[in-house]
Structure formats: structure tokens, C-alpha cells
Simulated scan of single mutants.
Amino acid sequence: MSYYNDAQFEAMMADMESDRAERKQSFQGDAPQKVREAVCALANDLAGHGEPGVVLIGVHDNGTPMPGFVVTDELLRSLADIKTDGNIVPPPTLLVEKRLLQGGEVAVITVWPCDTPPVRYKGRIHVRWGPRRGLASAQDERILNERRRHRDRPFDIQPIVDATLDDLDRLRFEQEYLPSVVARDVLVANERTHEQRLAATKMVVSESISAPTVLGLLVVGKSPADWLPGAYTQFLRIAGKDLTEPVVDEEPIYGTVADQIRRLEEKLEAHNQRGVQFADVSMETQAETYPMDALRQLVRNAFMHRSYEATNAPVRVYWFNDRIEIHNPGGPFGSVTPENFGQPGVTDYRNPNLAEALRALGFVQRFGAGIAIARKALGERLRFEVQPGFVAAIVGKGAA
């Protein structure tokens, strides 16, 4: 259901001074970029309205509908993709719909203010002041940082009160993470202190409260498992079909989430058998027992969606002779249920800020697509066991 009725939409169409509405004549040319910038700005809600803003497509600058403009299903799908294409982080909360306003068809994007600003589009923070939109100043960014909720916020940006700045790896933050999340020209131009940069990227609570967040320890912490006991990975290669069989390779994997993902993927590559076919083909071909692209998607999904709260359980990867099992603590979250788990378009984020960080670091190309990519590669070889306390991805063996 829409937050606004037709009369409210029409009033926003006509209000030339509004900082809660932006108008576009079409979704062609540079409009897709401009619309994303507008969505980012509305999600940041610099003015602090606390209510959704709207982007109206198919509307003249004077507030009247474009004659002959048609809202197609393809257009609505393209607009809905703004939420999940990974360019705006954290992913915005929005609703896309077709409305008949002042006698013409209009595509409407309703954008809710983000609880954990600042929101970035391609590494830049866009805001609105009055009817204008532009990049946030240092003061604008401070306002957004201070507005970040201290109650009912996601666990991944809650503080670890006994940790200090010494528990964060400054070199990793400045050389690896910061350039990946903030556009390079913005980074060069600003004169923010180290503490201000940590606060802006949610590695610490704020400029004045330097306690590292869960996110900070997971992404740039020197030893995350010292503070979050379950923040590690257990890998087992078992010579058999159940846990009672001999273990031929075992490794507990520690470090940041990025370190764990990289090392785990190295282990999977090392154990993955490849067969080579020479006969009856013009060129030799290779086939993997398990498609690595699919395994990468499942592994990264496990780290992104697992629970780090009130659990000492790691991500567990068990490689048996006939299957691989990837277990992550934490069952379905939010709008995801055991019944709709894995269905196209059904996704929610227990760790929205960690998802943002993994996207920035290159481990996620498109939000909500991991399971679909794995299913396309694996077909019936992939199944899920979904329980209140954990999710397991189980991949059957193929022929190498």
C-alpha cells in the first residue's frame, strides 16, 4: 500500500519548492543516474522530515504530466532494480508503482528515510536542500552521522564498548576499505580526521564516541573473534559421508570477514577436482566437480546473512565425499520465512551495513542475486535446510 494518496502526490507534483519530491520527464539518457542520485538524497533526508520522499517520472518541470507517457512493466522493473543493483548502499527502502495523476500515467518511487545514514550512491553522499540536490558537505555528513539511531539499530553497527581504536587496523582501513567505499576524488578533497572517517563509514559509533562497532571489528579489526567469539570459520574435509568418518583436512579460519572468505575460497579451490576431456572434442574441456562460481555465491551469502549476535557458532563448511554443506548460524530474518526462502525477489538483511561493506570490497555484485546464480549453476544439486537457528546450503556432487 502506498504511503501517500493521489491528492498528496499531485500536491507534491505541483510544489516547485519541495525538498521531498523530484520530477523527471522520462527514464532515458542520463535520467537513470539522476534518479539514483535523487533516491540516495531522499533516503538521507537531510532536512529530517522523517517521512518518505518521492521521485515522479513522466512529469514536466512545471508539475504537469508528460502527454503520451506510458508506464510499462519494463520501466517498473528497472525502477525496482534501483534497490538491489548494489549502487546505493545501504540498500534503500522504496516502493515503485504506477499512478494516474492529473489525467496522465506517472511512475512513482516512494523512498523512506534511512535509519542508518549516510547513504551513498557510488561512494558519494547526495542530499537535498530545498528544491536543489547536490553532494553533502562535511557539515551535512556530520549531521547525518549524528542522526544515526542509537536504539533499535542493526546489531552490526552497535558498539563493542570495551574495544578501542587500537583494536582496528588503521592501515587496512585507510589503504583497503576507505578507497573502496568513498570515491577517490572525494577522499582526496576532504580534510577529515581519521576518527571522522571511521565514524562516517560506521567503523566507530561517532566522532565523540570512539568505541568500535561490530562492523568495524568484522571489516578492519585486528582480531574480530576476540570480541565476537563466533566470528570465524570451521572447514572440514571428511573422507566419507558423515561426521563419524576420518577428517583428512581441518582448518579454523580467523581474521576479518574478507580474510575468511578469501581463505575459505582457497580451500574450496584446492579440494575441487577437475576432469579433462580429450576425446570427441575439437579442444580439450575441463569440468569441475563443484562449480566454483556457485560455491562463492553460497559462501558469501553465509557470511553476509549469518547472525553474529548471542552466538559462539562459526560458519561451518563440511566437505563430504558426496556433498558440501555450508552452515551459517541464524535462521530466516525479517520478511524472509522458511516458506519463501530463496524465492526470487524475497530478501532481507540481518546485517545491512556488513552487506554494504562486502559490496564495496567486491564480494557482492548485486544484492539478492546470490541464491539465483547458485541455483542456475547447480539446478537440483542445490537444496536448503532452513531452521529457526540456522540455514544450511547442501550441494550434491557432480561428475568431474
Rank of each mutant, 00 (worst) to 15 (best):
T72S: 15
R300H: 02
W129R: 12
F27Y: 13
I238C: 08
I394K: 02
Q8A: 14
D166Q: 14
I394T: 05
V391F: 02
K122P: 00
T84M: 13
D242P: 11
V188T: 10
T193M: 14
F384Q: 07
K376E: 15
G330I: 08
A7T: 12
A294M: 04
P212W: 05
I160W: 08
L295K: 02
D140I: 00
A31N: 07
S282G: 01
R142Y: 02
R142S: 02
Q286Y: 11
R148W: 09
L178S: 07
G104P: 12
S180D: 09
V106T: 09
E195C: 11
P229S: 14
P314I: 03
T213Y: 05
A360Y: 04
P291R: 02
R262T: 12
Q365A: 12
I82L: 12
M12G: 00
A279E: 12
R120D: 08
Q28A: 13
M283K: 09
D61H: 13
E22H: 09
K83Y: 00
P246S: 14
T110V: 14
Q297S: 07
E10V: 08
S206R: 04
D61W: 10
Q8E: 15
R133L: 15
T110N: 06
T110Q: 13
V89G: 04
P246E: 14
M1G: 11
R36V: 06
G230D: 11
V55P: 02
G58F: 07
A38L: 05
T93Y: 06
D166M: 13
N44D: 00
H271V: 15
V89L: 12
L218T: 01
Y4I: 11
V395L: 09
E265M: 11
A369D: 08
A231I: 03
L168N: 03
D293E: 13
M66N: 13
T256C: 06
F27D: 05
A239C: 13
M66P: 13
A270H: 04
R132E: 11
A372N: 09
H49A: 06
S282W: 06
A11E: 14
G53R: 02
L218G: 03
F155D: 14
D249Y: 12
A200C: 08
L79W: 02
A355P: 01
T337N: 08
L46F: 10
Y3N: 08
S335A: 06
P338F: 06
A355I: 04
G362Q: 06
G134S: 05
E266Q: 15
A393F: 05
G396E: 15
S180I: 00
A287E: 15
E250P: 07
A41H: 01
A14L: 15
I324R: 04
D152T: 00
P352S: 08
R172M: 11
A183V: 00
R300Y: 02
D85I: 01
L165M: 08
D280T: 07
Y232Q: 05
P32V: 07
